[in-house]
């Protein structure tokens, strides 16, 4: 059920990013819903399953973004491992944890894209990334806030509904 939730969220997020956001937002300013999902997976999943999920979503995003297959795969895998390996140092009770991690993950993603883009002859990718990074940070954090509010509303509105995955925040201390 949890896996289904991730898949559903990831695929819907991908479709929204490719087909809906471009209609209402400029080319250079789209919230990265998949990144928010990867951060969430980093908070709540184990190394093996979360790593595979992150890599899989990265490959899917590669089909719809950029020109090098595998780039986002590596980026999301490293972001997942980054979040997963540092999450035990943060206070899980803090409601701003996800937002802070999304902020850091966006910075990390930008750095990795510039680094990996250098191998792909991506030219002045670093200029584009630097130019749009402040806006992207705001958009991603804003998207994370909206998603958190939406999920909280879902849980309140449908009292019995348990959104799969959201109950696993405390299991990160298991291993």
């Amino acid at each position: 059920m949890r896996i289904l939730f991730y898949l559903l969220f990831g695929l819907v997020g991908l479709l929204i990013q490719t087909a809906v956001f471009p209609r209402i937002l400029p080319f250079y300013l789209k919230p990265d819903l998949i990144l928010v999902l990867i951060v969430y997976i980093g908070i709540s999943e184990k190394y093996s399953s979360g790593g595979l999920f992150s890599y899989g979503f990265g490959l899917l995003l590669d089909v719809f973004a950029g020109s090098s297959l595998g780039m986002y795969g590596v980026v999301f895998l490293l972001i997942f491992f980054g979040v997963r390996s540092t999450i035990c140092y943060f206070n899980s009770e803090n409601p701003f944890l996800l937002l802070f991690l999304v902020f850091c993950a966006t910075l990390f993603q930008a750095s990795l894209l510039v680094l990996l883009g250098a191998f792909a002859e991506a030219g002045a990718l670093w200029q584009i990334v630097l130019h749009h990074l402040p806006g992207q940070l705001l958009m991603n954090v804003f998207a994370a806030v909206l998603l958190m509010l939406f999920v909280t509303w879902l849980q309140k509105r449908f009292f019995r509904l348990v959104v799969p995955g959201l109950q696993r925040l405390d299991e990160r201390y298991d291993d």
Binding site: F27, L29, K30, D32, F64, S67, L113, H132
Partner: peptide
Amino acid sequence: SEDASSWFRT
């Protein structure tokens, strides 16, 4: 449709 990310132009 357009590129899924903000960094690339496809």
